[in-house]
Write a protein that binds this DNA or RNA. Structure first.
Lengths: 348, 348
DNA sequence: TTGAAAGCGCTAACAC
DNA sequence: GTGTTAGCGCTTTCAA
């Protein structure tokens, strides 16, 4: 490699114009070669490709996107990517997008519905080809309004906006079935005073979990002695709600942590008070957190394949982007895994 | 809102041309108003803004980027975003980028150096303004070559490529100090046969941890009875390496899990063999995993502020993008947190 | 088979 | 203070 080559191939972004000049062909011919147009002579092809190599040319995606009207990029809106639950969804989605030549841009809405709206606008201005949304709130009017005003394909991930049903795809987990199984398990063990440490009901999974708790009690023909403690889906709320539960008279005999972050806070509080599980209190979590199955004792959980959730969401979005049919809804299973954190309620 | 409005404001992306026509001004005037150019009369401003609202106009970022030569977007390359360690780094970085008006696009390289290269090329074609890289391997020649051929600002996160020192910024954690403190703690407790379950040495933290182990032993004037088990940074390797350790005669009395994923696998194996911690074996982890501090017993760890790591990385990248000085290096502290998983070695 | 030229939506230099 | 115009780098008719 001589010095000329080394100079040419380094650091500067060459334009198609320069490639055309070097190859002594028209710029449109370069374009044809690179987009594999059938009608190009082998000689020209070779000349162009040589120039491309020599200049280390890479087509400008921006210019291509502007011209073609597609960016091959999608936006993923999530409340908090540092939550392992969302991170695995993102991972599943990204692998599907990547395989299809799409890139995924990420924005955290930090559980703030007004950021939901801001970021959706942002993505639209950036002309993403589609949007994967795990909204901070699927009940906020501003968000629903913003969504109804835009035309990009949308997939809601574990969220529901009934007024948009005909325009957006949905991928949800069947939280209700999983939580019902968990509650039935607790009821069968003899628990009656069951506390659900819950998020606020402005996202679908929270609403479903609350409904499932009530449903299971009603279905069992029992009087409702359950308790729902609402608050943000944070470890802080998990911790303080657990404190509340522990101070109640009579004290609930089982806690369902309605989210993985809530569980972390809950465990912190239980440890501080040296509550024995399951002798003093039974515990179930909704969504795992790393090590929850290796905890002492292993913690029963309502769980699901979140990587798959991400993959399916991405697939539905690509289908919409490529105009392969109308919006669809998918419901993926959840499963209740009984583990030693559930036992009989303490006597008395 | 009348029907006309409803029609105009919904679903179609209006162009600046249409806004100009509706407001009966030149297209450049629209541009001036929107980019807050000082010399615009209040009347025109009002006319333009009215038209903008009426058409629900959003400027096309793509066209702006092409024209301005900046995309206000950066790429983040990471081996696996579903690892909480990387997810929190991403979270810290994203918040800084977002505050500065930048978006962050994510690609997983799945611990495959060839994907590192592919994704770097991909980002360059997309004309990102900068790159945050947690490479799968910082020793791969192809990667180094690819990096030396591109001109976008780069920040290496917890990675080192000596030949690129003058061209890229670095943000590293001081793994060496943290691991040395951990080893010194174990030595003080009487441990001599210490096993480090390690990743492969093609990323900086792994190399530093191995070096720190040796350093600490030498500094203590002891004969080296340590053992390093290399492999991928996965739970599988953590598990199988632990099996290996448990079968050794004489068996090591302490294990250092050189990464959070390795810890998860290690714990699984220890539980299966009913190894008591710290009575039978002492344990330290490098980087926490959710619940590792709430484990029974709580697990000693070499840890660091990963959100801060992400934030600082983003700040250095923005500084380079805005040409505010040459590439910089930052070393952020790690800290060893002794916890009950470390005790005296078993007798005999 | 190849080249010339229009234009994607925007910004900025220049004119008035 | 506002309008006209030349591109940013590419794709794609339309002619030749």
């Amino acid at each position: 490699m001589d010095d000329g080559d080394r100079f040419e191939s380094s650091l500067r972004k060459a334009s198609m114009r320069e490639v055309a000049d070097l190859a002594r062909v028209a710029i449109s011919s370069v374009s044809r070669v690179l987009s594999e147009h059938p009608d190009v002579s082998p000689e020209m092809r070779a000349r162009v490709l040589a120039a491309v190599r020599r200049l280390n040319y890479e087509p400008d995606f921006l210019a291509q996107s502007l011209r073609r009207g597609a960016t091959l990029s999608v936006g993923y809106l999530v409340s908090d990517i540092s939550n392992p639950l969302h991170a695995t969804i993102a991972c599943g989605a990204e692998s599907v997008f990547r395989a299809a030549g799409y890139s995924m841009t990420l924005m955290n809405s930090e559980d703030d519905p007004s950021l939901d709206v801001k970021h959706i606008r942002f993505f639209v201005r950036r002309r993403v080809d589609g949007l994967l949304l795990s909204l901070a709130s699927d009940t906020s009017l501003e968000t629903v309004d913003a969504l109804s005003r835009i035309s990009v394909p949308i997939v809601l991930v574990d969220r529901a906006v009934p007024t948009l049903d005909s325009r957006v795809s949905h991928v949800n987990s069947d939280h209700r079935t999983g939580v019902r199984a968990a509650v039935e398990h607790l009821l069968a063990l003899g628990h009656r005073r069951i506390a659900l440490i819950s998020g606020d009901p402005d996202v679908l999974p929270v609403r479903e979990r609350i409904a499932a708790l009530k449903e299971a009690v009603v279905a069992a023909g029992l009087q409702d002695e359950t308790l729902v403690l609402r608050g943000p889906l944070t470890t802080q709320h998990g911790e303080s709600a657990t404190e509340t539960v522990l101070n109640l008279q009579p004290r609930p005999t089982a806690i369902i942590a309605g989210g993985n972050q809530l569980l972390a806070g809950c465990l912190r509080s239980l440890q501080r008070h040296r509550i024995r599980i399951p002798e003093d209190l039974s515990l179930v979590t909704c969504d795992e957190i790393p090590l929850s199955e290796l905890y002492s004792p292993p913690i029963a959980s309502v769980t699901r394949d979140t990587v798959e959730l991400g993959r399916v969401s991405a697939e539905l979005l690509l289908r919409r982007i490529n105009d392969e049919g109308p919006p669809e809804s998918r419901i993926l299973p959840t499963v209740f895994l009984p583990r030693p954190s559930c036992g009989s309620p303490p006597l008395g």
